[in-house]
Amino acid sequence: MATRSTATLRPPPGDDEGEGSAMPGERPRPFLRRPRFATVALALPVAFMVLVYAYPVGAMLLKSVTEPEFGFGNFGRAVSDATTWHALGVTVRMSAEVAVLTVLLGFPVAYVLARVTARVARILSVLVVIPFWTSVLVRSFAWIVLLGDNGVVPRLLSPFTGDTAGLLYSEAAVVIALTHILLPFPILIIKGTLDQIDDSLVRAARTLGAGPVRAFLRVYLPLAFPAIVSSGMLVFVIGLGFYVTPALVGGPKESTIAVVIAQSVQVTFDWGLAAALATMLLVVAVALTLVVRRLTKVKGLVSL
């Protein structure tokens, strides 16, 4: 007990700069120091995160092994149920498709935003962000109208498809709607990085003998790569847990894991199973993120 109290009063060496290298003639430090500003400033957000993030996640993890009784019964039920695996597969596949699509569509936009003058970039950036002002619910309903039977999209496609049947309640509908909703993320993240790329690098590559295509592929693209990967990862992870859009425009055959979780809570009142599924989703998200990060590390760059 006594040793513990001294330890709290004297921080370990290396905790603070200058500790242990007291200058000659320096006054001894006050025994009890006032907390530093950074400590105080950080306390609030940390407390907030604990309250609204760590506590619910902890409670969920706890519930998965205690509801209705202690043990891994919930995981057993989840793992042995084919719907779980199907939903998990659908979720991962759709999120991956959305991530790839948003990055492919977002990169050219980000490229243009990074090339135009600052004034034009500001205006265009506002246009990119405007959809954020509308709720996801509204945007998802908009897609119901657009993609439904005799909707704008099926009618535009009718010369090719031969009918005006809607695309709704399908995986395609979810992917289209989610791509639209999540597109601003890669655009803004990639633009941020492209803005940092020194124009003279591409010019240097040109004078050193690279044509425009090789200069882009060998110099520009590798420098944009960390942002491309991290924005794709962000969209992927958001997509994994996205509920509203898949629930509205998705079909019953392609339920995502979020939809299955919601059903467990709202329809079957099976909180334990819902918690177990949520935990599995969390594990998948963390694992995939780590794998992708490891695979795509670009040397010589400070990755995001």
Partner: peptide
């Protein structure tokens, strides 16, 4: 500014 390729 040298324009060295930072990823190489």
């Amino acid at each position: 500014n040298y324009a060295l390729f930072p990823h190489m």
